[in-house]
Design a protein around this nucleic acid. Structure first.
Lengths: 214, 214
DNA sequence: AAGCTTTTTGAATGTGGATTAACGTAACTC
DNA sequence: GAGTTACGTTAATCCACATTCAAAAAGCTT
């Protein structure tokens, strides 16, 4: 639910020797709360008072850490995808050197799903609100999305070159269809109705082979 | 972009002999506009004034046709899926009697995509806002979604029984993954960057066979 | 064209919610 | 422990809407 490291930003001068300055922790708490509310209520529906409640402080206190509601939202949306990308990079970096491109895509599917469903409200917020942001906020979001997409595009290209993706598929469209299948899980998956592992396995299988028996 | 027939409702007493009473047409215009704005701005972001602008009238006029903003939204959200379902029923009804269950699923994929991308802002509105509705509105929406899902579940069951879907796939999860791939297209597809026909073909191919060459 | 109903409007009304201002209190420094 | 800075709080302020109201237009009907 929470991010790992918050951007130091500039607040909280106190050079924290050990863990995290209290200030930084509060900032993170606000960010986490915003992500949570955003993922449920959507961009326009997010009330600063909801965020404040969830973060256990008063709404005006938010202004001590963020210049405006928009800035807060922008950071959430941006962090959502950035974290996702970091996660994927990490997973791919740890992959065995004998992994084929398709193996890597499967790892990507797992990384994407686990991050989306297990780790982060941020990602859910990013995904759900992708469509309805005002221009200003959208920009950075789009840029970050592009970086993430780029990573995948590379995976797809390699897989295609290795003959592990059918030639008749348009790579861009195929990639977007995969993203759709993955992103949509946030809308229907319920931890109580089935394990995350199962969903991951099914998604991998589906992405690779579709519905038909080979 | 527009629906075919508006619910007669009660307004517009004039027993229209020929086409459509003017009243009914205005009502539809408002509904269409609401769907449009809703699909872009989201539930909480939809301003009655935006709807009014788009429908070329003043905001208060909306109240002549709908008791409240919420009622208007509810009707849009409901109609989105209902129309989709009607469309699918129609397509399946017209299918050749020798169509296998998998053929029918392919028809469903096409129907879903064409309706979503070509015909209706309603569907986009329903899809995009599915997650962020308040309880009241949600209910009817969920019910309608269930009816639509039911139709698909039947298709999947038949296909599975006919051995056209791999046994190792959980049917519910598989269905949701397919929905995801299809629903998400509204987020990325751009008519100017590729034909609808191509997307349909790719989606069918992907759903059936996944990425891997058989 | 007077008298009815349907439709639309422009000017209130009222409220929710972001943002700001002014004021504490804790915490750290010397 | 006086002074300074960091962090929050409560009480305004201010504006953007949804909704209501009273009255004007448009349309019919005879």
């Amino acid at each position: 639910m929470a991010r790992k490291a918050a951007a130091p930003d500039g607040r909280g001068k106190t050079a924290d020797g050990a863990g995290e300055s209290k200030s930084a922790r509060t900032r993170t708490r606000i960010l986490d709360s915003a992500a949570h509310v955003l993922s449920i209520k959507g961009y326009a529906g997010m009330r600063l008072s909801d965020v404040a409640d969830h973060a256990e402080l008063q709404a005006p206190a938010i202004y001590y850490y963020f210049p405006s509601r928009e800035d807060l939202i922008e950071e959430v949306m941006w962090a959502g995808i950035a974290d996702m990308r970091d996660h994927l990079v990490e997973v791919l970096g740890a992959a065995s050197s004998e992994a084929t491109p398709m193996d890597k895509i499967m790892l990507g599917v797992e990384a994407h799903l686990r991050h989306e469903l297990d780790i982060s409200d941020y990602t859910t917020a990013s995904i759900r609100n992708a469509g309805q942001l005002p221009e200003k906020i959208r920009k950075r979001q789009v840029a970050e999305e592009a970086r993430y997409g780029e990573l995948w595009r590379k995976l797809f290209k390699e897989a295609s070159a290795a003959g592990e993706i059918r030639d008749d598929l348009d790579l861009y469209i195929a990639q977007m269809l995969v993203f759709g299948a993955l992103n949509w899980t946030a809308e229907w998956w319920n931890p109580r109705r089935g394990s995350l592992g199962t969903v991951v396995a099914m998604a991998q299988s589906f992405v690779r082979e579709g519905l038909s028996p080979s």
